[in-house]
Amino acid sequence: MSAPNIVWTRIDERLLHGQIRITWGKHTEANLILVANDEAAEGPNAAFMQAGMKASAGGEYAVRFFSIQKTIEVIHKASPKQRVFILCNTPTDVARLVEGGVPITHCNVGNMHFHEGRRQIAKTVSVNQQDIDAFERMVKLGVSCTVQNTPEQTPVNVLELAQVGA
């Protein structure tokens, strides 16, 4: 079994949408977007969620919807020709992937909107303690975690931002 060709991993609460296709997909030269999300893969509204996200992909990418556990189980079966862009909506899900053996080395943090119980650490990123704990777990496992909304922006370490905003 060879290592999967993971070209990008991003956290975005909205999961797959136009900015992913137009900006990040082209920037990373991905040809497969893997939405690793339990709800989108198996939840009661999965078919509806998948239809909207597939439409957002515009036919430019193969799109898969796997639960976190299924991603852990099958990612190493990916063809070397697949340039995989993993998309999650929480840092906890990315941490679960890493802890499950998915060889992620970098996590791009894009959109984590402000909700009750969160504090804003960047224009498009708000976190709670569970999020910070997940980022810390990833960093301990060798994953760099940076906030960068678009490729033109300079990436900033998410934990440094969290400390400044504390």
Rank of each mutant, 00 (worst) to 15 (best):
G142C: 11
K81V: 09
I72V: 13
E60V: 07
P155L: 07
R64L: 06
T28S: 15
R119D: 08
I33Q: 08
K70V: 09
V7K: 10
V109F: 08
Q148C: 08
A55R: 01
E42H: 14
L34S: 06
H113T: 14
E116R: 14
V127A: 10
K26D: 01
L161A: 07
T9S: 13
N89D: 15
Q50M: 04
H27T: 14
F114G: 11
T9Q: 09
N128C: 15
V84F: 06
S2Y: 00
A51E: 15
G117L: 07
V156A: 13
T23F: 11
L141N: 07
Q120R: 15
D131L: 10
T105E: 13
G117E: 08
G18W: 10
E39P: 08
K26G: 01
G25Q: 00
T28F: 02
Q148S: 10
A57W: 01
Q148P: 06
L141M: 13
G165Y: 13
M1H: 09
A36Y: 10
G18T: 00
A78P: 06
E73D: 15
A134G: 05
Q69V: 14
H113Q: 14
A162K: 12
G52K: 05
K26E: 07
E99H: 10
G117W: 06
Q69S: 12
L141W: 04
S56T: 05
R21I: 04
G25T: 08
P80F: 00
Q82Y: 08
G101V: 06
V63M: 09
Q130F: 11
G58H: 00
A36D: 06
S2F: 08
R118I: 09
C145W: 10
T23G: 13
F135S: 05
I20S: 10
L159C: 07
G110D: 05
Q129A: 15
Q120P: 10
S56D: 00
K140D: 14
P103T: 06
E116I: 04
Q148R: 11
V125K: 05
S126F: 03
D38P: 12
I75Q: 09
I121N: 07
F85L: 07
D93C: 09
E136M: 12
R96I: 01
D38M: 03
I6S: 05
V94D: 10
H115E: 15
K26Q: 03
T90F: 13
G59V: 08
C145D: 03
H76F: 05
P155Q: 03
N108P: 00
D133N: 13
G117V: 09
K81P: 04
V74A: 07
L159F: 08
Q148D: 07
R96E: 13
E73K: 09
S144H: 02
T90R: 15
P91L: 14
F48M: 14
R119M: 10
H76R: 14
A78S: 15
L159Y: 08
L97I: 12
A78G: 00
D131K: 05
F135R: 04
V7S: 02
I22G: 09
E39W: 02
L15G: 11
V139M: 12
N108A: 02
N157E: 14
I72T: 04
N89M: 07
I20Y: 03
G101T: 12
V102E: 11
N128V: 11
G142L: 09
L141D: 04
T28I: 00
G43I: 03
A122V: 10
F135M: 15
T28Q: 07
D12V: 03
A36M: 04
I68M: 01
R96L: 12
G117N: 03
V98K: 13
R118Q: 11
R119Y: 01
